[in-house]
Design a protein around this nucleic acid. Structure first.
Length: 423
RNA sequence: GGAGAAUUGGCAGAGUGGUCGAAUGCGGCAGUCUUGAAAACUGUUGAGGGUCACACCUCCGGGGGUUCGAAUCCCUCAUUCUCCGCCA
């Protein structure tokens, strides 16, 4: 959520920046300012009424104490009017505040200067690429065929017990998955991230805190009986650990990593691109989350990008890094780098990580602040990234590492797997 | 799931209808003293709105109510603790 003061100060810059998202921010920003004016005006009136009423109450108290009950009763009648007034004003204030909130929820984050304009993923800007695209055997297969051939992932079985998009991993497939999780967590821990385990269900307030609610309500599984949401990403529970906190500057940087399953309804997805592991309702992910001083957040973002590069380099997967264009940028993000692994067998790039700086957009909702050197509360910055999303890394490994008689295991994973080949 | 108790500032802990945004202690910060540190002493120390700055307003788990006036009374929800039951 944008800060009103920032909107007031930089309205025109924001409008220009929002054009990169193909959004005309003018009506919403102006509406926000207008409602804020109204809110302040109403608040001031209410405050005045309350002040008057408070003064009277005090006076009444004094009169009663000194035994002048009659005079007190005269004053009492006066307060009735004020009470009515303040009730009306209070309702008005609540209404305006809610309207303002609704408007603010509709405004996405302001894209960073470096974000290219554009509509679709076609307009994303490739900023880095590395790794050799392997030459595969002539009868190379996509991962869903490999999975069947070596009996390591069973999609039909998942359909039987749950539905489409809930695969069952078997034998070496399951072990490879577990190995990846352990490997990622180890890499992240080495890099200074503290490993934590968090709940996989969150309440409504957490959903609002990181921005999944109210706009992406339909993307999350909701447990109606208890009014809880299955997390679509560890970002929600991990970032919300700090909801409402006021940090000390010396606590920065805060770096956490967590493995969780992720649950996504993926309503509206279809077609060949959702085959196999490409798009699932439940998948595993290891996430990194940082809470940073505003002056350090972009430096931190670069650091996270380097960190993920490092992992992919070790896995020897061919990948590229994209700077997302305005149209492809997530609602709450200011700058996002996507990582994609090339799958030779599918002849396409698979998104395996997304690393973002949200600046103060989430922390404004979360009320996550720190005390600056003058002792004033300031909003912190939050960042997160996947390191990494399991299914597509798995797909990338299966497809890129296939040989005539099986699938080789990347060297760094062999100690984690306990085997060097799936066959 | 049943019965009882509790929820106050960073922490501990007073406060049971009026001058309480809240005693006191600890912690934090600043200063005095000291070569330096500790101790001691002095001052300061919740958040948000509002203002040029004050004033002023809101917040004592959340929400609602009673009252001229609520941290204090009532209702409700949540959470925590103790006992019982059940259980990986």
């Amino acid at each position: 959520m944008l800060q009103l003061q920032a909107i007031r100060d930089s309205k025109n810059d924001f409008i220009t920046a929002l054009k990169k998202r193909n959004i005309d921010g003018t009506p919403l920003l102006e509406k926000a300012i207008e409602l804020d004016d109204k809110r302040r005006e109403t608040q001031t009136q209410l405050d005045k009424t309350l002040a008057e009423s408070n003064a009277l109450s005090k006076e009444i108290g004094m009169l009663f104490k000194s035994g002048k009950a009659q005079e007190a009763n005269v004053l009492k009648e006066k307060t009735g009017v004020l009470k009515e007034e303040s009730k009306v004003l209070n309702d008005a204030l609540a209404t305006v505040a809610e309207e303002l909130q609704t408007v603010l929820y509709q405004i996405p984050n302001i894209p960073h200067n470096s974000v290219p304009a554009g509509n679709t993923d076609e307009d994303n800007e490739e900023v880095f690429s590395e790794g050799d695209i392997p030459e595969l055997v002539s009868n190379a297969m996509p991962h869903w065929e490999l999975a069947k051939k070596y009996d390591i992932i069973d999609f039909e079985l998942g359909v039987k017990i749950t539905g489409a998009g809930f695969p069952v991993y078997k034998g070496k497939g399951a072990r490879l998955q577990r190995a990846l999780i352990a490997y990622f967590l180890d890499k992240n821990t080495e890099a200074g991230y503290t490993e934590i385990q968090v709940p996989h269900l969150v309440n409504e307030a957490s959903g609002y805190g990181t921005g999944q609610l109210p706009d992406k309500e339909g993307q999350m599984y909701h447990v109606g009986e208890d009014d809880l949401y299955l997390i679509p990403t560890a970002e929600i529970p991990v970032t919300n650990l700090f909801r409402g906190e006021i940090l000390k500057e010396e606590q920065f940087p805060i770096c956490y990593t967590a493995y969780t399953p992720c649950f996504r309804r993926e309503a509206g997805s279809y077609g060949a691109h959702v085959r196999g592991l490409n798009r699932l309702h439940q998948f595993d992910k290891v996430e990194i989350v940082r809470v940073e001083h505003p002056s350090k957040s972009f430096e931190a973002l670069d650091g996270m990008v380097e960190h993920v590069k490092n992992i992919l380099r070790e896995l020897k997967l061919p990948y590229r890094v994209l700077r997302l264009c305005g149209g492809d940028l997530g609602f709450t993000s200011s700058l996002t780098y996507d990582f994609e692994v090339f799958s030779t067998a599918q002849d396409r790039w698979l998104e395996i990580s997304s690393v973002s700086n949200f600046e103060a957009y989430q922390t404004n909702r979360l009320k996550l602040r720190y005390k600056d050197e003058n002792g004033k509360s300031q909003l912190a910055h939050t960042l997160n990234g996947s390191s990494l999303a399991l299914p597509r890394v798995l797909a990338g490994i299966l497809e890129n590492y296939q040989v005539e008689d099986g699938i080789e295991i990347p060297e760094v994973l062999i100690p984690y797997c306990g085997f060097s080949k799936i066959d």
